[in-house]
Write a protein that binds this DNA or RNA. Structure first.
Lengths: 206, 206, 206, 206
DNA sequence: AATGAATGAGTCTTCATTCAT
DNA sequence: AATGAATGAAGACTCATTCAT
């Protein structure tokens, strides 16, 4: 799988059509929304029969939940790895976090779109689990912001809301990013990193 | 209607149940999404019969279109008024635009949520019309950014994408704003204005 | 409607297809059982479309409940009327009750069959309501039995269980009665009345 | 297995899961009816997989047939044995037959319930076979009745229908019997025997 | 004998929409 | 402008059954 091509989120799980189904669900929900996509649509995309879906997943909403869980797992893992490998100072850690985030969006745009738009249709424990994972993502950024503010690197007067604002801004990238767009992946990451630092009122070189 | 309380978007139109239906549609689409809400849901919320809906609106998608059009009209009007009344310099015009935007969100949160999440389900001319209106909104900000960059007030190296980023960031406020939240409406506007100026790399007083 | 021909249970209700639907449901449930009959079957029998059913009834089980309720109402009403019109002594009151019961079975055999076999598929309040009505039916007989025992007319040592046994025995008639059978309606009633009196150990003329 | 506790109908057959499956089917059909119970339900109750069912039974309806056949075999066998061991006179033979019947119901209530309610869903030869067995059961009672009538012991004017009425009355016991009920097994048998004799208008000691 | 994956027909129910009144 | 009745297509999900292993 070329790193440049939009990778499918779920690799073969060694269990029949499972991966195909999860990826198909992601695509279907991305293209038509959770309520706009039917289980038949998903089955068609997965190249299997409608009823066979239910050998893998007990319901449509659990299918959404499963797909979102996997997407978030992947995102969180990437973020943590990126931050861990970055240097010590807040600015470079932030930069690496943003880079990883952008990379995830570029490679799994649909996953991000679905993640952003369809979580609201989760209910009960599935919703709670997802919210918890989102909080974990946010915590990564909150910690960096706190560190930078403590060090005097970030001078924003609203550090408390900054991480959330950052995340929604970043997440929104999945709404308009096009592979054939003006900016390369690297430039996009650079741009978003600069936006992030500016938002936090880090001193910038002009 | 007290300006502080969440106002209904559509005031009485002098045509039977029209306003009730449009507002009901807004609420229904906001609560369950376009495909998740049924015409029956809308009728119930509007306090009328299912079939009577079709005396006012020819189809469900036209209902969405109509509702979104009104929301956008209102938003654009407010933005233009705010910018016109502001001073001449880019920074204060931006500040007023952000203020107006935040005020709209606070007063018509559901309208903003629906506007953000459900446009994708419009098709054909309805979609085109809406996109055009959105572009008008964006143009307001683009013009301010261009002005500020020309005047050297905004030093962002990415002025082209800045307006869009600004708008999505602002729009996202509708996703988390709660009337009972920590910040007052004024403080929220102030915060968002500061974020905006920071993003554009306007010199800030520390 | 000739009293000799099997009458439909529900007469025109003045509300569209309602009567047709309820009678169709009765027939369908009678012929194939509650779970064996599909809503499509009911619709077909009623001469309307599947979806139109739901303009009259919210669910399949509520349809069963409604049908059973009406059948029981009719039965109870007939029983009470018959007993009221009978003389004072237990034996003749019993005889009239049995007669009325048999007449109901003959005229509404399917209703009785469904009533006997499909109540078990009711749940919740629908079940409770039906059970209550059944108890009302049983109470009619219990009272007669108690009266007869008190008067010394009925000498059974098991008066407590007699009413129930009587009712199930009578109800079972709906399982084998055939209009073209050996016994006329009157003879059938006479036979069942004699069985009933014998069961209660009333002195019989030999 | 304690004779007092409700025994499973089918003992180990020495063929893998066969007994478990047949007993599970009985329970499932008893709890939800033939059409209300799915093969999946049966498999779950049997503790095996859905597809494994088909290694023992070719279809759902044959499963019902098999189960009913075994139940009836057992019942007929018990009846015959009881009658054979009884004395010569009709009254005591009837008494023993009723006793055996009640004992069967108490020990295999579910089997009786299914037998009563679900035969109607059999078709073709399965149905014919079952009907034949039922006729055998009825014949046992018919013969006793005939004998008693001939001897002047039973004075009912309707001997022809008496056996059937007796059997449905007895069978209905399975519909309301509860192990924790007021009457012991012996008392229940006694009560039903008395009902039977009364129905046949045998002279009773008062 | 046992399983998990697969399927096509069928389940109940809801959909957006139309029509007669 | 307003309603209740009506409809055909589609919704999610389950059915009994088969097949490869």
């Amino acid at each position: 799988m070329n790193a440049r091509s939009p990778a499918t989120l779920v690799a073969d799980t060694g269990r029949g059509n499972e991966a195909a189904i999860l990826n198909a669900a992601l695509d279907a929900f991305g293209a038509q929304g959770f309520h706009g996509a039917s289980m038949r649509d998903v089955a068609k995309r997965a190249g299997t029969s409608l009823s066979n879906l239910y050998n893998y997943v007990p319901s449509k909403s659990r299918l959404l939940a499963e797909v979102l869980r996997r997407a978030n797992d992947e995102l969180v893992a990437r973020l943590r790895a990126a931050v861990d490998e970055a240097g010590d100072d807040a600015a470079s850690r932030l930069r690496e976090a943003v880079r990883a985030y952008v990379r995830f969006i570029v490679e799994h745009q649909v996953a991000m779109v679905v993640s952003t738009n369809e979580v609201r249709y989760l209910t009960g424990p599935d919703r709670a689990a997802l919210v918890a994972e989102r909080d974990a993502t946010q915590a990564v950024f909150e910690e960096i912001v706190a560190q930078g503010v403590a060090a005097g690197t970030f001078r924003t007067p609203y550090p408390d809301d900054a991480a959330r604002t950052l995340l929604t801004t970043l997440g929104a990238v999945s709404g308009w990013y096009r592979p054939e767009g003006r900016l390369s992946r690297g430039e996009l990451a650079e741009q978003q990193a600069r936006y992030a630092l500016a938002l936090l009122e880090a001193p910038l070189a002009h």
